[in-house]
Design a protein around this nucleic acid. Structure first.
Lengths: 165, 165
DNA sequence: CCTACCGATCGGTAGG
DNA sequence: CCTACCGATCGGTAGG
C-alpha cells in the first residue's frame, strides 16, 4: 500500500485511505475490470452466425488479445483473485466459471455438429483455456512475436487438433 | 514458519532453526526435488529408440504423471520459485530451461523428420508445456478423471494436432 | 491529503 | 528443542 501511495506521489501510506476503503477494494476492482474485458470481447463473437470452428477461432484470438493487452489485470484474474475474501471470492469465481462455460459451449457445439473429432469436452476446454491463459507467463509486448501472430498460431494449431479428419 | 513448526509438533517458531538455516532453504529443497522428479521421468524416454511422435507421447504422459503425483512440489516448481533470491533463482531457472529444451528438441525432431505439420517450434513447445502444467490448477486426485486417463487424453489430442495430414 | 502512530505478524536469534 | 524476545514490515486509523 505504501508503494501504491508513493506511485501516486502521496506521502505515507495513510493518505491513500482518503480515496479507498481498503486494500481488497483495489484487488476486487482489477479482477472485475479483467472479467469485463473478457466478456466484452467474447459476447459479440458468440452472437455471430458462424460455424463452430470459425467461432472458436475468433473467440480464441479475442481472448488472447485481451490477455496480451491487459497483462496486469490478467495476473489478478488468473492468480491474485485467491487473496479475495468471501463473499467476493465466490462472486468472482462464479463470473469466471460463467465465462469458461461459454468456451465449453463452443466445443460442445462443434462436437454435436460433427465438426470436431471426439474428445472429452471438459478436458478439451481446460486444455484450450490453459494454453491461452499461460500467455500471461511468457508473452512479452516487446518480444519476438506479436500478439496477433501468437493468437493466430495458437488458434490454428488448436483447430487443426480438433477438426475431423 | 510457525505453521511448519506446529505441524512438526514443535513449540514456537524458534525450534525449527535447530534443523534448518532459513526459510528459503525449504523452498530451494522443494524446487530441486521437483526438478529431479521431472528429469528422472523424462531421461529414460529421451534415450529410447522410438519415433518422434511416440517419444513425445511418452514424454507428455510421464510429465503429467509427475505433476499429478507431486502437486505440492509442482506449485513450487511452477510458481513459488519466484521467491528464491539470487543466485538460487537463476540456478533454478537454468535447470528448468534445460528441461524445457528437452521437450523443444522432441518437437524439433518431429518437424525435421516431417512427422509433424509445420508450426512455430517455440510456440508449439510453450503451448504443450502450458497445457500440461496447468494441471496443477485443476487436477484433483479424487476427481472424476484419473491422472492416467487425463495424461493419455492430453497426449492424444496434442499429437492429433501436430501430425501431418 | 499529511503526520504520527497502533496492533498484528513475520523471520529469525540468544541463551539455556 | 524450549522460552523469551527483537527489529522490520504491514494494513489501517486518529486527528488535523
Amino acid at each position: 500500500m505504501r508503494e501504491i501511495a508513493d506511485e501516486l506521489d502521496m506521502k505515507g501510506g495513510g493518505s491513500l485511505y482518503a480515496h479507498i476503503k481498503g486494500k481488497e477494494d483495489l484487488l476486487w476492482g482489477i479482477a472485475n475490470e479483467a472479467a469485463d474485458a473478457f466478456f466484452a470481447a467474447l459476447e459479440p463473437i458468440m452472437a455471430c452466425d458462424l460455424s463452430p470452428d470459425q467461432k472458436l477461432y475468433n473467440a480464441m484470438v479475442a481472448h488472447i488479445l485481451v490477455i496480451a493487452q491487459h497483462l496486469g489485470a490478467a495476473a489478478v484474474y488468473f492468480d491474485e483473485w485467491r487473496h479475495l475474501t468471501e463473499p467476493r471470492r465466490s462472486a468472482f469465481l462464479q463470473r469466471r466459471d460463467d465465462y469458461e462455460r461459454l468456451f465449453q459451449a463452443l466445443i460442445h457445439d462443434g462436437l454435436a455438429k460433427g465438426a470436431f473429432a471426439p474428445v472429452d469436452e471438459r478436458i478439451a476446454t481446460l486444455n484450450i483455456l490453459s494454453m491461452m491463459n499461460a500467455l500471461r507467463h511468457w508473452y512479452r509486448p516487446d518480444g519476438r512475436l506479436a500478439a496477433q501472430d501468437i493468437a493466430a498460431s495458437i488458434a490454428s494449431m488448436t483447430l487443426n487438433g480438433l477438426r475431423q479428419r
